[in-house]
């Protein structure tokens, strides 16, 4: 396992879809390679931060306005 191979497997490692043997190989690589360990940990944090901070949430007033507008348009247009 080298760093390029580690990057190839990074997506599956983050998504936790690797088989046990590959997982062990990647763990062993990270134990020896500080850079790959940092890349893994900080990429995982990147995903977590975006999940924890839901950007662009809709204010209740806007939601009400949009829902009303959508249903009005649907009633007026009918289905294809």
């Amino acid at each position: 396992m080298n760093c390029s191979n580690f990057l190839i497997e990074l997506t599956d490692l983050l998504d936790e879809v690797l088989d046990a043997e590959m997982h062990r190989e990647l763990d062993a690589h990270m134990a020896a390679c500080g850079h790959c360990k940092v890349v893994y940990v900080t990429t995982r944090k990147t995903i977590q931060i975006y999940r924890d901070n839901q950007l662009y949430d809709m204010a209740p007033e806007l939601r009400e306005k949009l829902e009303a507008a959508i249903l009005l348009k649907c009633k007026q247009s009918g289905r294809c």
């Binding site: 839901q54 950007l55 662009y56 949430d57 348009k73 649907c74 289905r79």
Partner: peptide, 30 residues
């Protein structure tokens, strides 16, 4: 709304897209 706001990076565009998408889905639901 969150998805289209991420893509358009513009709130007014996102509002338009949400309406257009739901309307289109309704019109084509068959």
């Amino acid at each position: 709304f969150r998805i289209v706001n991420h893509i358009t990076q513009n709130r007014e565009d996102a509002e338009d897209v949400v309406q257009d998408a739901f309307l289109k889905a309704y019109q084509n639901i068959d």
